[in-house]
Amino acid sequence: MKSSSRILILLSSALLLAGCASTGRIASRPAPTPPPPPPQPPAPESGVEVAPYRPPQVANARPQPSRAVQALLERAEDQQRAGDLVAAANTLERALRIDPNDARVWNRLAHVRLAQGRYRQAAGLAAKSNALARGDAALKADNERIIARARQ
């Protein structure tokens, strides 16, 4: 048990330190410093509790204003269903101003542009969503579908 908790401490400090890693030279260290975390979460080893992987920068990034964005996403959904695409785009742009790193919002805006027949924009927005989607495979697949449809 003792050793596993030590691993945990090591792991979390590794994650913390990784946040400070940059491409440049890191001042010479007495002990080896762990590398930045790989993009995929480490496979949990049996008997060892492994903290879930979080990209280190996210901890101190923009706070998640989820409720506000969620409310706007729903409103845009309603507007799109009612056929008011201009209003839906408006609402989604408002959501993007609140959280420009939310891949879902870029994806929704891509859908609206697609529905408006603005294919070039749809593809651009879907690509943008992809770039922010991190591990969300379903979202990425949807973005790829938008890009494919836009190119037809």
Binding site: R25, Q57, A61
Partner: peptide
């Protein structure tokens, strides 16, 4: 802070800072 997300096609590798050769942690 800048929160750069590494795209899927980017990998991190240990290198020797002087030569740029492949190294280890």
């Amino acid at each position: 802070p800048l929160a750069l997300v590494p795209p899927d096609d980017v990998v991190y590798v240990w290198v020797d800072p002087d030569t740029g050769y492949r190294s280890a942690e």
